[in-house]
Structures are given as structure tokens and as C-alpha cells.
Nucleic acid binder design. Structure first.
Length: 582
DNA sequence: GCCGTTTTCGGCCCGACTGTTTTCAGTCG
């Protein structure tokens, strides 16, 4: 049993206990255990064998026993029983805004229904309206919520959420009397997907700020409004919350609503241990006395004996300890990028010429572009055969001659990894490239062992410099193929191969959690836009967000290196590969 | 369920908002 499956099983226990109406702290203990497992550095079996498992904070006697059973037998009778007790459809109800475990349970018991469809029907039949604790308004709200669950599954890509958040920030900043406005929440932390958008403002007239926010034409519906908070649903799908606070409270509110929840809990516990109380308005001594003056987030962290923690790292994954020791990484910034690798042109499935792509990269201040069109096996994408490769290289040589050293197009390829792990070209053709990205585009359904073996074999090929979108996931659409990713990452480290962070907002693959696992083991990455048109180059911003979440510093990113260093690295690899091939 | 330098029971982060209620429980972040 791997970490993911163990964590899911524990979290499912927590969820089912919640729906059963158990002690909320008990349910939290299971959810917490799930999080602990997901953040493990080792496989569960090793965790148990080493004897560390029962010693882990948050794992007591009961959880230790259940984890041993799960890992040992692959099953947990306790969970099986819970599943029988709680109908499956009930879990879906929790995605409906305003419907939590207590109310879901109350409806289930009173009306003896348990699916989304039944709930919808019950609302339309006015059966919720007459239930104790419910009414006409909440029935209508639940009905709208069901539609929302169906149409959007409740989460949105970072690209959608960030774009909307930035537009709203601009809108609010332009209002007279608005002194400060910032994006908070998971968008600020650059999560790969977000449920909603959070904004915090300081305004001379909160009314005016909320009026502008609620009245904007992008707003579909105003779902709540009080003295300090206004909630809306946007036409584009996400909901957005605006909070208006005083100048003095601003940094506290910003920090609070940036989260993550786990980070906040840990920070509050730290404050408590220092006899301080932290909330979204202030930091105050428990025993009275003057609260420390905090004009910005950095001052709040400083008052808690910590260095300022970049929002992307606030996930309670060790960042607080680093901040305490003042050893937080100097994270990659978008301005650190010197070029991009892995882009397509009209030679395969891109929509722009090589020159147009190169010019677009130049306009963005970069000095090189790794052109990696598809190889022949990707026939659906117009993959190049060996003859077309030679033609393309002539075209690139001509273009580079015109750039006269001011800009360089690298002769790359996104070579298909065939089902058995072999590359899509023979050594003669492979030897022609400056840069090789190896990706899987077919046979996603292979068994986990075979898929792992396949990609490990590709990583071990001396021609390969970078692994492309290593899991093949499409966010909110398709899970990645079954693979032992950490085995692949370990192989990449062993062979000095980089693993890309595919920056397409639908991919963000490699996942930041796995990248964070690889970094202390020596993993090198590359922020690859995988652009199929010039504007696609701007997707690197999402990849940079992902890299920052993982704690990536510029020295670990191929395309943050100056061209000379990159070429030296690629040249050495190619020389070794050529020697092996003969 | 877990935890413990006030330790084996009693607390576990905490405040705003909503919709239902005449004083509050549930949800959310």
C-alpha cells in the first residue's frame, strides 16, 4: 500500500465519522493522520518497519493499529463497516456550499434519501422547507448548490482563479478611498486549483468598496453581505470573498486568509506557546500588556520569532522550522528565467513558426528557446520523422545565423517514450539534437510496474536530458497514469536527468509535493511552458508558482541558467551519450 | 481520536455570517 492509498483510506474514515455525527475532534484526528501520511518521506511499510510510525506526533494507539492493519493486509474492517453505515451519495452532498456534515445527516435521517438526485428532487418537492432547522431560503440555496456541484465540480484551475483575482484586485484598487488591496487564499499560495478567490482591502468607505465589488458585471450572484464581508459567485464559475478591514488589522487579516489552514493552526499554536493570541485582527499578549506593532506580515512573523514565509510555502510542511532557523530557501522568481525549453512550432502541432516563437521569447527578455517538436510516433501531432528533423535543423541554423548570437534556438525534440521504454529514434538521429525531452503520450493504461519500468528505462537512456510531464495528469480532468513516481525521480537523480515542471495550467506536472521530495535528493528541474503558440510562453508563471511551492531555488532550474552554462551541461551529456552509443 | 513542564481527563484555533431561530447551531475559512 502506497502513501496515497493509505492517506485516502484514513481521510475516508474521517469523512464517514463526520457524517455519522461522531465527535468532531475524532474526525479531525483521522484527517490529520491522512495529512501526515501524505507528507511522509518514506513508503508506509518502511515507516512501520523503522518503528517511527507509532512515535509520530498525531498517531496514537488506535491509529497505529489501524495503519498496521491497512498496510499489512490492504484492508481495514473498521472502514468497511463505516462504508456500510454511511451511504455513498452523502459524501457528494458535502460539496454543496452551506451543507455540512450535521445538516447532511439531518436531511438523510429525516427524508431517508442519500443521493444528489434524490436531494435535488426533495428540494423541488419543497420537502426540505418544512424540516426543522431548514427553510425556504436554505432549500433554494441547496438547489443552486447542486447545480454548481454538477457544472463545475467546485474547483477551478489556478489560471482561471488567478486571472479573475487579479482583475478584481485592479478593479478595487481603482476605487477612491481604497488604500490597500491584496489577493489572499489558495490563489496567493499558488495552489494548482482553487475553490474560491479571497481579497482583503482597506477602504475609507467599506460600503463603496463592497458596492463596486458586488456590482461588477462579472458577478453572477451576491451570496452574502455583512459589515466586513461580501461574497459573490462569478459568472466564470468561482466564488469570491471580499473582506474589508482597518489599516491596523490588514496584515493580520491578509495572513489569516492566506492560510493554509494547517499553517495557521501551527502558527497559532506557536503563538499560544509564547503566551500570545493571534487572530485575523491582531496579536495580543494573553496576560495583557501592549500588543506588538505589526505594519506588515514580516513584523507578525518576526514577533513570533520567525522569518517572513513566502505564501507559496505556507502549507505546514516544515516551513515554520525553516523560518525559525532563518534557513528558508531563496525561491525562484519569474525574472530568474533566462529562456524556455520545450516549445512546439508549426513543424509539428504548434500554431506558430519557429521564428515567431523565438521572437516571442525574445520579447519576454529571454535569450534562448528550446524547440522541442514531437517525434514520429506522435503521428496525431504531426511528429517529425528523421528526414524532417534534418530539414528543421537547417532552418534553425539559418535562423540562428540571423540572430547573430543575440538569441539562440536550441535544436530540441520531445521524443516519445515507446511502450517498452525505448526512444522513438535510433542513435543516429538522437545524436543530432542539442536537447532531448522524453515524454509518454500513449499506452496510459499500462500496469503500474510496467509504466514505472518504461519511464525508468527512458530516464536511463544517455540521450535523455529532461523528462516531460512525468505523470500525464490533466487537472480536474484526468488522473495521471499509474506509476511509482518516486522510483522515476530517484532514477532521474541517479542519471543526472532533469524532470520538468510542465507549466501548462491544466498540467502543472510534476506536482509540487513530489518536486519537494526530490529537491533534497538532488533533483534538477526545468520550468517548461510546452507552448503551442506564442502566448503559451506566459504559462511559465504557473510553473514558477509550482516550483516556489516546492521550495525551488534558481540553481536547480535548467532554464534559469545562462545559455553558456546550459550548453556546457547539455554538451557534456551529449558527449557521454555519443561515447556510449558507439 | 490525540495529547500532556498545570499530564491520564478535559481541551482540542477562532471569529463572521447565515438562516433559522427568540438566543443559537451549523458552516466556512
Amino acid at each position: 500500500m502506497d502513501r496515497e492509498r493509505l492517506a485516502s483510506a484514513l481521510e475516508e474514515c474521517g469523512l464517514l465519522l463526520e457524517l455519522k455525527g461522531e465527535n468532531p475532534f475524532k474526525t479531525r484526528a483521522y484527517a490529520n493522520a491522512g495529512r501526515i501520511v501524505r507528507a511522509l518521506e518514506v513508503e508506509p511499510a518502511e515507516w512501520i518497519e523503522s518503528g517511527d510510525m507509532p512515535k509520530t506526533k498525531g498517531i496514537g494507539k488506535a491509529l497505529a493499529e489501524k495503519i498496521e492493519t491497512l498496510v499489512g493486509t490492504g484492508e481495514l474492517p473498521y472502514l468497511e463497516d463505516l462504508r456500510l453505515e454511511v451511504p455513498e451519495g452523502l459524501r457528494e452532498w458535502l460539496k454543496i456550499p452551506g451543507l455540512g456534515p450535521k445538516k447532511a445527516r439531518a436531511i438523510h435521517l429525516a427524508l431517508e434519501i442519500s443521493t444528489l438526485g434524490e436531494l435535488e428532487y426533495a428540494c423541488k418537492e419543497n420537502r426540505l422547507r418544512d424540516l426543522e432547522g431548514f427553510g425556504k431560503t436554505s432549500q433554494a440555496k441547496i438547489l443552486r448548490g447542486i447545480e454548481r456541484v454538477r457544472s463545475h465540480a467546485g474547483r477551478f484551475l489556478q489560471s482561471v482563479a488567478l486571472e479573475e483575482a487579479e482583475r478584481l484586485r485592479t478593479l478595487l484598487a481603482a476605487i477612491e478611498g481604497v488604500r490597500r488591496v491584496e489577493i489572499a487564499g489558495s490563489v496567493r499560495r499558488r495552489m494548482e486549483t482553487s475553490k474560491d478567490i479571497d481579497l482583503v482591502v482597506v477602504a475609507e468607505s467599506p460600503e463603496a468598496a463592497m458596492d463596486a465589488f458586488a456590482g461588477d458585471e462579472s458577478v453572477h450572484e451576491v451570496t452574502g453581505r455583512g459589515d466586513t464581508k461580501c461574497s459573490v459567485v462569478l459568472k466564470s464559475g468561482p466564488s469570491a470573498d471580499l473582506r474589508v478591514v482597518s489599516e491596523a488589522a490588514f496584515p493580520f487579516t491578509l495572513m489569516y486568509f492566506t492560510g493554509s489552514k494547517d499553517h495557521n493552526v501551527a502558527i497559532r499554536a506557536r503563538a499560544q506557546s509564547m503566551r500570545l493570541k493571534l487572530n485575523e485582527y491582531a496579536l495580543e499578549p494573553v496576560d495583557g500588556g501592549d500588543p506588538p506593532v505589526c505594519g506588515d506580515e514580516a513584523a507578525i512573523y518576526a514577533a513570533l520569532g520567525l522569518a517572513w514565509i513566502p505564501p507559496e510555502l505556507r502549507e505546514d510542511r516544515g516551513e515554520i522550522e525553516l523560518a525559525e532557523a532563518n534557513t528558508l530557501p531563496a525561491l525562484l522568481e519569474i525574472g530568474d528565467l533566462r529562456g524556455v525549453l520545450h516549445c512546439h512550432s508549426s513543424w509539428s502541432d504548434g500554431s506558430a513558426t519557429i521564428e515567431e516563437m523565438a521572437e516571442a521569447a525574445r520579447e519576454r527578455g529571454w535569450s534562448y528557446l528550446g524547440l522541442c517538436d514531437h517525434s514520429q510516433a506522435a503521428a496525431y501531432a504531426g511528429g517529425l520523422d528523421p528526414a524532417r528533423v534534418i530539414e528543421q535543423h537547417v532552418a534553425i541554423d539559418e535562423l540562428n545565423a540571423r540572430f547573430a548570437g543575440e538569441f539562440t534556438v536550441l535544436k530540441g525534440i520531445e521524443v516519445d517514450v515507446l511502450a517498452d521504454g525505448a526512444l522513438d529514434f535510433d542513435d543516429e538521429t538522437m545524436a543530432r539534437f542539442d536537447l532531448v525531452v522524453a515524454s509518454i503520450h500513449s499506452r496510459f493504461g499500462l500496469p503500474r510496474d510496467e509504466q514505472t519500468k518504461r519511464l525508468r528505462r527512458a530516464v536511463a537512456s544517455p540521450w535523455v536530458d529532461v523528462v516531460g510531464h512525468p505523470t500525464g495528469r490533466l487537472l480536474l480532468a484526468r488522473d495521471g497514469y499509474a506509476i511509482d513516481l518516486r522510483a522515476v525521480l530517484s532514477a532521474a537523480v541517479e542519471h543526472g536527468v532533469a524532470v520538468e515542471v510542465n507549466a501548462h495550467p491544466r498540467r502543472l506536472d510534476l506536482d509540487w509535493r513530489e518536486l519537494a521530495w526530490g529537491l533534497p535528493r538532488g533533483l534538477v528541474t526545468s520550468i517548461n511552458p510546452d507552448a503551442h503558440r506564442p502566448e503559451g510562453l506566459d504559462d511559465v508563471r504557473y510553473g514558477v508558482g509550482t516550483a516556489r511551492k516546492a521550495g525551488v531555488t534558481p540553481d536547480r532550474v535548467l532554464n534559469a541558467w545562462p545559455l553558456a552554462r546550459l550548453q556546457e551541461w547539455l554538451g557534456e551529456r551529449k558527449a557521454r551519450a555519443a561515447a556510449t552509443a558507439t
